[in-house]
Write a protein that binds this DNA or RNA. Structure first.
Length: 662
DNA sequence: AGCACGCCGACT
DNA sequence: GTCGGCGTGCTC
């Protein structure tokens, strides 16, 4: 019996999109995009069929081991979309295609594959067979067609409260469903799904298909199949559901569009909001992005008319009784975390038997301990950061890798024995608070507390007492719907503002906006207040909380000047590995290749390379490089070419992070 | 990414 | 004399 040969891209990130030729019995037919299990190297790997080929010359072929149930094969338009997306994110095609498959799809040994007699649909899929590169198949044109379709807007940016946004979503979902078209709704957290699902069911009378990582593999696979079959046309889930194979897609909604949770940190490193815009365009669907404080990039897209801005009338918002920015630079301040102004406000709240929340973006007692004799700070062995001191457990903790150790008796450098604690965290706030308000019950909610008890239990005891105070970090924002406080105090936001990341200001703006909303959503009548202590009282991110348009204007001015998104594209290239010399060498040679490709032109600006913000994480040394430019294609080409032509020293990993710019 | 092959240093 | 470091290269 003769054999058939198929090219396969193996899902091994380091190999990018290299094709390998495998063999099957002549009677076995494999469609484009089929997921297969193959012998690879000395082991095995998953891969995807990209075409049928002639018997290769000069290479031994191995036989495909098994084929994943082809009833789960993503539709062709999604496969092509995947190729486009892979290029968009400089990610391997296989990594993107894997997003189109639910977990635990059954696979059949290739020997048991009963070949269908080449149904026409399957045959058509094979049209792309040949020697062309995967990426050349259905390669997208420059730009987005919804930018081209003059006058016809298919994208909305909804700026308003949760109630306002969902009213709009429901209206548009209704229209889409009546039109017999499918809808995907993406929310940032699993916790948001339950209430969203209730709203959808109550207002539309239809149950959404739910997809998120908390569900069992079997349930996810079943739901996925129902979507694929067209039995479910309304999908609700977290970021990965933006890839679900909804039939006749008419609308994609991304709520809390600005949330960091929409970004995937592992390959492919996509952002659900950006994928939603690209996919909606690809499938001629509408897209709705919603937020109570939109991202800078999306806001500017709306201003440019590429998204239709729908803004809630702000007069309907509950006004804050009091808000204040407390200047930490003012002279004559006593040391301490709670200023006199903050103290007065809290006292007022507690005297009225009410609850307050104090926010500080740092857990533990102090962020470092320093030897008073030589100035040495105790650092983590595996990471280039100082260890935080946690008084409750009397130990030092690395906030990057979790390494814990006791406080050394003597300084490892000079033998000194006097330590100074610097940089206060939530445990320190707790100590200071207890001295200032000994009679007010205090609760703490941060990552350390979550290791021992649930956020729900802490919050429910907090909400059962009044007066009461909650000292907390970023983790609280996932539970803001469970909160009911009359005052929110931000003890400091300066460490976040001073990060050298072009999005630092924006992050602080979103964080403060979220916290202000917590104060605003207090259920009780009467006073609610919001206070910020900061060394940067006139910073746009701080002032912008009270005047968002002004923040957007200033932030856009600054980005325009520096050509940051949305005024250009920014790709970060990261190198990591055990050997510091090799990582450095890899970064330098990649950068040199980029310079060479650029040839002194002005299309792509090459920034760096330089050691990363945190040069060592979990024993891995890191370098980075940024590529900035107006022409996205040029940036992508440079990344692809430089990546394929630079020989990375072994043990060095390269990864691309593409900033949102749509 | 794994995983083997291959060539120079410390050891029983 | 052998064990074992990791530097290099390949995976259909």
């Amino acid at each position: 019996m003769s054999d058939a040969y198929f090219d396969v891209i193996v899902d091994v990130p380091a190999l990018r999109d290299r094709r390998f030729t495998y063999r099957v019995r002549e009677s076995v037919f494999l469609p484009y995009g089929a997921k297969v299990h193959v012998p690879f190297g000395r082991g095995q790997a998953d891969g995807y069929v990209v075409g049928r080929v002639q018997e290769p010359e000069g290479v031994e072929t191995k036989e495909i081991l098994a084929v994943y149930d082809t009833r789960f094969l993503p539709p062709l338009h999604l496969l092509s979309f995947g190729c486009m997306l892979a290029r968009h994110y400089c990610a391997p095609v296989a990594s993107v295609w894997s997003c189109f498959w639910p977990p635990r799809v059954p696979k059949k040994p290739v020997s048991k594959v009963v070949s269908p007699c080449h149904p026409p649909e399957v045959a058509r899929r094979d049209a792309g067979v040949g020697n062309e590169e995967v990426r050349d198949l259905e390669r997208p044109g420059e730009g987005l067609s919804f930018l081209r379709r003059a006058g016809e807007r298919t994208g909305y940016l909804i700026w308003g409260s949760r109630e306002f946004r969902w009213r709009f979503y429901i209206q548009k979902i209704k229209e889409a469903l009546e039109d017999k078209r499918g809808v995907i709704v993406v929310v940032p957290e699993v916790k948001r799904i339950e209430s969203a699902s209730k709203i959808l069911e109550a207002d539309l009378g239809s149950k959404a298909a739910i997809l998120h990582s908390g569900l069992s593999d079997a349930v996810r696979r079943r739901t996925w199949f129902e979507i694929l079959e067209g039995q479910r046309c309304l999908v609700l889930g977290t970021r990965s559901c933006v890839f679900s194979p909804v039939k006749d897609l008419g609308l994609i909604i991304v709520d809390e569009e600005e949330s960091e949770s929409h970004r995937a940190e592992d390959l492919p490193r996509y952002s659900a909001a950006e994928v939603a815009m690209l996919r909606a365009d690809w499938e001629n669907a509408a897209v709705i992005l919603g937020s109570s404080h939109p991202s800078v990039v999306r806001y500017s897209r709306a201003c440019a008319g590429r998204l239709l801005l729908v803004r809630e009338d702000r007069s309907s918002l509950t006004p804050l009784v009091r808000s204040q920015v407390i200047d930490l630079l003012a002279k004559g301040r006593r040391r301490g975390l709670i200023t006199k102004e903050m103290y007065e406000e809290l006292k007022c709240v507690f005297d009225g038997g009410k609850r307050a929340l104090l926010f500080l973006n740092r857990r533990g007692t102090s962020s470092a301990i320093i030897c008073l004799d030589c100035g040495h700070a105790v650092t983590c062995k595996r990471c280039s950061v100082s260890l935080s001191y946690h008084a409750k457990k009397r130990e030092l903790l690395c906030h990057i890798c979790g390494h814990r150790q006791p406080v050394p008796d003597v300084c490892p450098v000079c033998g000194g024995y006097r330590w100074k604690l610097v940089g206060a965290g939530t445990e320190r706030v707790e100590e200071e608070f207890k001295k200032k308000f000994p009679q007010v019950p205090l609760f703490r909610l941060d990552q350390d507390v979550l290791e021992e008890s649930s956020a729900e239990s802490v919050l429910s005891s907090f909400l059962q007492s009044s007066p009461a105070c909650l000292v907390t970090t970023q983790v609280v924002l996932g539970y803001d719907d469970l909160l009911d406080v009359e005052a929110v105090g931000v003890l400091s936001c300066d460490s976040l503002l001073n990060l050298s990341d072009f999005r630092a200001s924006e992050r602080v703006f979103h964080l403060l906006s979220d916290l202000m909303e917590v104060a605003r959503s207090a259920q009780s009548e009467g006073r609610t207040s919001f206070l910020i202590q900061t060394y940067n009282r006139s910073h746009r991110a701080v002032q912008g909380v009270f005047d968002p348009e002004d923040f957007y204007r200033q932030e856009l001015d600054s980005r325009r000047f520096l050509r940051y998104p949305p005024f250009g594209h920014l790709f970060k290239v990261e190198f990591s590995g055990k050997s510091p010399e090799r990582v450095r060498e890899a970064a330098l040679s990649f950068a040199a290749k980029c310079e060479e490709l650029e040839g002194g032109g002005e299309v792509v600006e090459i920034l760096g390379p330089c050691p990363a913000q945190i040069p060592k994480v979990r024993g891995q040394h890191r370098w980075q490089l940024a590529l900035k430019g107006q022409d996205r294609e040029a940036l992508t080409d440079m990344c692809e070419t430089a990546a394929s032509k630079t020989v990375l020293p072994s043990g060095v990993k390269i990864s691309f992070e593409v900033e949102d710019s749509l």
